[in-house]
Amino acid sequence: METLMILLAGILVMAATYLLLSKNFIRVIIGTAILSHAVHLLLMVMGGLKAGNVPLLGENAAPYTDALPQALILTAIVISFAVTAFILVLAYRAYKELGTDDLEKLRGVDDE
């Protein structure tokens, strides 16, 4: 199962890299979003995908799953949510102001 998940994360990174290398604002942004999903999967796998109990309810608990990766992933999701939201607004503003969503065309725009 872990191997499968790692492969999945790898595929996501692959797709994201492809998107990041394109010249379109939106594609780059979607690329970063997919990239963050890949790393969330990686975090989860690194904690181990054991089929354990709920962590630490009571003193003599059965074998439980590591709770830390969940906390890490949740935090990472919130942060990537905020960053993606910001960069979307930024890209939109840039599109309105510069009249293009092509990164290539932005080269050398009025450099002072």
Binding site: A82, A85, L88, V89, Y92, K96
Partner: peptide, 13 residues
Amino acid sequence: GVVITIILSISED
């Protein structure tokens, strides 16, 4: 607050 602010700032104009 953040979600609505973002949606509104994109949709405003």
